[in-house]
Amino acid sequence: MTAVLTVNPGSNSLQAVLVDAESEEVLARATDEAGLDDLLDRDLAAVGHRLVHGGSQVTKPTIVDDDVVKAVEAASSLAPLHVPVTVRLLAKLRERLPNVPHVVCPDTAFHRNLPSVAHTYALPAEWREKFGLRRYGFHGLSYAWAASQVQRPNILAAHLGGGCSACAIQDGRSIDTSMGFTPLDGVPMTKRSGSVDPGLLLWLLDQGLTVDEVRDGLYTRSGLLGLSGGISDDTRELVAAEDDQAAFALAVFAHRVRRELAALATNFDHIDALVFTGEIGWDQPEVREAVCVGLGVLGIHSGLAGNRDDDGPVSPPDADVPVFVVRPREDLQLCRETVRALA
């Protein structure tokens, strides 16, 4: 096993990274399909595909065959911004590289052993059984990497990026998380709403909005974009805007992340670390500070340092609960899981 190509299609992006599986050195990278095409001419040992939602059938890193493709396709409606792109790229790359093993690595795998009290919805039993209704959880590749970099027993973690979530990690495994059946749940995101009263959604449908209109609003016009009145979905732009509506959007966002972290903390008898990761979590000290301002009740305090060049603490040395930042490296976690699936 030498070079592994990792393919990570996000809701608004594409990251393709060629990784030496032994040294975990990045050999090359691309951020669009033209660049990805160039990487296909390399000598590849395997291709690892990030799969945001594997549904009830693809629950761990899995070698791809036609049956696995059908299972992935069946999960498309559960993550409509992500899975259809993965399906398309899977077809393209399997055709271009028919003799190279392909592995799908679901983000849901990290959360597949959530305790039943954490993953079960208070819905009719016949619905849960017929439709496989449960809390799946997402951003698993990111959380698995973060947990490997901050090896503490009880970790509160926040992945803040285009998609945002929070997770309680105990001894390296997920025991509770903010996202549920789909990646729309939990805290507000850049364009996605996060949790909304289901009664509110039923009311909107009763007012004449169509299912497609509600879906579009929740997935593409909500979150920071909706809160800021359309100013921006980028936290950096909102911080720089010096606008009341932009400041309000950031305040709501921080409040919701803070509240979710506090709720997840009830899974522990003590907290050993708070970890920020994701593009925003890694690179936005203003957002980290705003989240921590109200967490003193958990022993987490504000007054954090700014950005650093490597992973590590941003809290004072004497902090009751240290706060860490971890650069998101889903590419390296994809490589690791691909290698394990093929072993």
Rank of each mutant, 00 (worst) to 15 (best):
M1R: 02
A3G: 11
V7H: 06
L14I: 05
L18M: 14
D20F: 03
A21T: 15
E22C: 12
L27F: 13
A30V: 12
D32K: 01
E33K: 02
G35Y: 00
L39P: 05
R42Y: 11
S56A: 15
E73K: 04
L78H: 00
A79N: 04
V83S: 04
P84T: 12
P84H: 11
T86S: 14
T86D: 02
T86A: 14
R88Y: 04
A91D: 10
L93E: 01
H102W: 08
C105H: 04
D107C: 03
A109S: 15
F110M: 12
H111W: 11
R112A: 15
L114G: 11
L114C: 13
V117K: 04
T120Q: 01
K130A: 15
L133T: 10
G137I: 02
S142W: 03
A144D: 08
W145T: 13
A146D: 06
A157M: 09
H159R: 02
H159D: 02
G162K: 01
G163I: 08
A166S: 09
I169S: 11
T177I: 14
S195L: 04
D197G: 11
P198M: 11
W203Q: 10
W203G: 12
D212V: 10
D216M: 10
D216R: 11
Y219F: 13
T220R: 12
L227C: 09
G229Q: 06
S232K: 09
D243T: 14
D243A: 12
D244P: 15
Q245K: 15
F248T: 13
A254K: 02
G281Q: 00
W282K: 02
R288H: 14
V291F: 06
G296N: 05
L298Q: 07
G303M: 03
D309V: 07
G312Q: 10
V314A: 11
D320L: 11
D320K: 06
P322M: 00
R327N: 12
L332K: 00
V339A: 07
A341N: 13
